[in-house]
Design a protein around this nucleic acid. Structure first.
Lengths: 138, 138
DNA sequence: CTGCATCCCCTTGGATACTG
DNA sequence: CAGTATCCAAGGGGATGCAG
């Protein structure tokens, strides 16, 4: 028997679902930050930035490896919906779909490049600290 | 036929677990990026930046709401281990633990501020695009 | 042949209760 | 007050099937 009466504490009451944000209820800036502060989003945007030209899905996936197609699709939809990325479909055989940064998307790049620079400059220190802590604490 | 033979494709073989990166195998820069490109990490670092002084756990949680204690603890340990955040424990009652940015952590802030500025300047556009797509596609 | 949706499963993150 | 342990829903990875 299942007299369980599932506790069901507070099922679903999030303010900003990171995966599929329904509607930015609060601050737009926070919404934009959440969009960008995602593991794969930055990789994708950088790949598009480096390409500096329309790039096909498959190629994009290789550039952002080891991302999965599922995740890449998801994030591209999200970015497209946010106006940072544009998708162009060619009605031809074999099918071709190209992605590119929009003007709005390009405005993001300086900040992302800054982040990337920091990572390149201080990544070594971070890893060093990490390894040291690993040695000390076990 | 016994369809048993569970497909069992490739159970667990990840290269870079984002949650608890064991050891930065590849590029340190990539490791640092993954560390920063996390939903809560940026919020936490900004809170520490704004405080500009040692801040207690509870206070930090309020500043980074609606983060959970579990997540805050996890990310703080990660940041501490990476050398971006320092933790100081006071052996007193009631217990007190203070967190602060390290010098290394401060080097990150300019880049993060840049990101934040972008979010404040263009967050409106992002939300606008989002809403428009929502209206057009259903 | 390319891109996307679906399935299953494991990991991550949120919420609560409890201990030092 | 700080932190851990536990339960549970959701997110993300892998493989496959399908549509254009």
């Amino acid at each position: 028997m299942t007299p369980t009466t599932p506790p069901r504490p507070t099922p679903a009451e999030q303010t900003a679902p990171s995966g599929e944000a329904a509607a930015p209820t609060a601050c737009p800036a926070a919404f934009a930050m959440e969009l960008v502060a995602h593991k794969w989003t930055i990789h994708i945007l950088f790949a598009l930035h480096r390409a500096d030209a329309p790039i096909r899905f498959r190629k994009l996936q290789r550039e952002t490896a080891p991302i999965t197609q599922k995740e890449l699709t998801k994030r591209l939809r999200e970015l497209e919906r946010s106006g940072l990325v544009a998708r162009r479909i060619f009605a031809e055989v074999p099918p071709r779909v190209e992605y590119r940064l929009t003007d709005l998307g390009r405005t993001l790049m300086p900040a992302l490049v800054g982040l990337h620079r920091w990572a390149e400059q201080h990544g070594g220190e971070v890893v060093d600290h990490w390894r040291r802590a690993e040695r000390e604490s076990g």
